[in-house]
Design a protein around this nucleic acid. Structure first.
Lengths: 171, 171
DNA sequence: CCCCACCACTGCGAAATCCGCAAGCTACGA
DNA sequence: TCGTAGCTTGCGGATTTCGCAGTGGTGGGG
């Protein structure tokens, strides 16, 4: 029993160091736990334990640690349009010099819910959620385009959200 | 008691019909429930009930309905890089003619986790999650660019995820 | 080599939560 | 007037959560 996913920490742990990108690397068991919670964020610990081959308490500890470390978050996600935010857009941004100051300033804005540094014809791609056109205009024109370092922006206003999934892993 | 969020169904419900965009519109109470679960997807029903002014049973019923209707989902979200998917990209796509066939084909691909129809110099923006460069190349080049109707694509490979939030509402 | 600290896991009992169900109430529309 | 829909209260049993004590393995330090 308890053999479905063998931790085998000694074999898996070859690169357990912090990989340069950010968070710590996950072993096979934590990965399996994340997958379970990607299917259903409210799944009970005992059920997860059964699936990954761990006791209920162990799962609880791991989940708590994953949450504390910020590796994952368990939340409700919706289509913002349904929740009363009627204007949403993706912005492509080009920056002069260091990206970080701009990225940090954007992080501080609550209307900005998603920020990625990219390779390609944009340096940054950010997603903004606004209440209406006026709000969107203000955020883009007054708050983002005026940030020091921002050279140019291009806007893609959302017309319809077609798909939104969180089940990589489940393949 | 039970006065923090007054439902006042008669006043709120002016536009309760299906708005053209998709899901049904939410009243103030369901909105408050969603906000609670955006902060913590595992928050107990009783606590939510206290916060929004509803009984535990009523919250349970509403949450179940919201899940069934697909208005929201309660899931774990992570940075894919942490979970072993080492290549991720945003694609801007331009399409000849009707967008829907292309959007539907993309929806069927499990590597595509996010699809939006946009106004601007792209018709579609999609986010893809892949295991490595080979995988990414195959998805873009062999599976997406060959779809009938796809005129052109532009890729923005992710270098670093800087922010990811799900707490609109909480403002 | 022993000892000890540390960490992750297990097992268990108590408390809290979940869940289904029933009865009663109100608002609303046919 | 009747029926429906949604909420509330109350309840009990099953399940889950949570804290804590105990165990086993691993890696120093003496």
């Amino acid at each position: 029993m308890h053999s479905e996913v063998v931790a085998s920490r000694s074999a898996e742990q070859r690169d357990s160091k912090e990989s340069r990108n950010g968070g710590p690397q996950l072993d096979a068991v934590s990965l399996a736990i994340v997958e379970q919670l990607q299917e259903d964020g409210r799944r009970p610990y005992a059920a997860i334990g059964k699936a990954v081959g761990l006791s209920e308490a162990a799962v609880r500890q791991r989940v708590q640690k994953l949450l504390d470390q910020g590796v994952m978050q368990i939340v409700a996600v919706t289509d913002p349009l349904t929740v009363g935010f009627r204007r949403q857009a993706m912005l492509g941004i080009n920056v002069d010099g260091d990206l970080d100051p701009v990225a940090d300033a954007l992080t501080a804005m609550q209307e900005v819910e998603y920020i990625v540094i990219t390779a390609g014809s944009f340096d940054l791609m950010v997603e903004v959620v606004c209440e209406d056109d006026d709000h969107l205009l203000e955020v883009i024109n007054k708050r983002i385009r005026t940030l020091p370092g921002v050279r140019s922006t291009e806007s893609f206003v959302y017309l319809k959200l077609k798909k939104q999934t969180y089940m990589w892993g489940t393949r």
